[in-house]
């Protein structure tokens, strides 16, 4: 197989995408290294969540190639894409657990869908995954009975149910207190170190970036403004990168004439 040779799990070239008339991603090219944790960083509305949705095949690009293990998923039909998706897991921002099912049934969902196993084997797998994320004993709880952090852990257990090669996180620490968020970061590190999973995290939380990231990609207004290892990010001289790292607000200064024109709606 080629996979031993290829060091990049995902290679995106010239990805362009639109919402209606508005161009969100302006022809970006990135590579996600295999077996490492890559963080896609950027402010709100820079297109990082859109990029993530393209990487898992939820959205189709206007133009460009998204190669996962060397195969372009933008050109695949739904059936082929589903075979690729078996090797991926995704933790959504709000965990996206199905509220009508218990935690165990949620985790069992992808297992039952993709593997023909008897019920006791499925339940053993479910308990293993729940134990891994620290949720043993919560099998029969419904998502509405869990706290935000527990929901994310349950969502993570579901994402890793089929032992994926690729794991995606959309804003894992959003809406969590620092302690819970740090716990989730530990889990992400553990998954990379112990299982060697290629991890892609979309976030704007700097503390978490410095804990988990091996490789950083930074987006701004639909373009890649930085990609490289963590040390390079710290030393980057790019103005936008520095603003982000130093938490400086964006200061838009008008000339008095411009301001006047703006307020009279000209």
């Amino acid at each position: 197989m080629m996979s031993a040779v290829m060091e990049n799990a995902i290679e995106v070239t010239g990805l362009r995408t639109h919402y209606g008339q508005r161009e969100i991603l302006k022809g970006i090219s990135i590579a996600i290294p295999r077996g490492k944790t890559s963080v896609i960083l950027g402010g709100s509305g820079c297109g990082k969540s859109t990029l993530l949705k393209h990487l898992i095949g939820l959205l189709r690009p206007t133009a460009g190639k998204i190669a996962i293990n060397g195969r372009d998923i933008a050109a695949m039909d739904e059936e082929e894409l589903n075979r690729v998706r078996r090797k991926m897991g995704m933790l959504f921002q709000g965990a996206a657990l199905l509220n009508s099912l218990t935690v165990a049934e949620n985790v069992a969902l992808p297992i039952r869908e993709h593997a023909r196993l008897n019920e006791s084997t499925v339940m053993i797998m479910v308990r293993m995954k729940l134990d891994l994320v620290g949720l043993s004993g919560f099998e029969n709880f419904y998502p509405s009975q869990l706290s935000g952090g527990m929901k994310k852990r349950a969502g993570l257990a579901r994402a890793i149910a089929l032992d994926p090669e690729l794991l995606f996180f959309d804003e894992p620490s959003a809406g969590l207190d620092p302690v819970t968020a740090a716990g989730l970061d530990d889990l992400i590190l553990k998954l990379r170190n112990v299982f060697g999973i290629t991890i892609v995290v979309v976030t704007h939380e700097l503390p978490s970036v410095f804990t988990i990231a091996d490789y950083v990609i930074m987006l701004d207004a639909g373009e890649v403004i930085f990609s490289g290892i963590l040390d390079d990010l710290r030393n980057s001289q790019n103005e936008r990168v520095r603003m982000f790292l130093e938490r400086r607000p964006e200061t838009k200064t008008y000339s008095p004439d411009d301001y006047f024109r703006f307020i009279v709606g000209d």
Binding site: R86, G94, A96, L98, E113
Partner: peptide, 16 residues
């Protein structure tokens, strides 16, 4: 409500 909570997207990513 499943659509707005990304649960539908989650189903698609699980290949369901």
């Amino acid at each position: 409500s499943m659509k707005s909570a990304e649960e539908v997207d989650a189903l698609v990513t699980m290949g369901i």
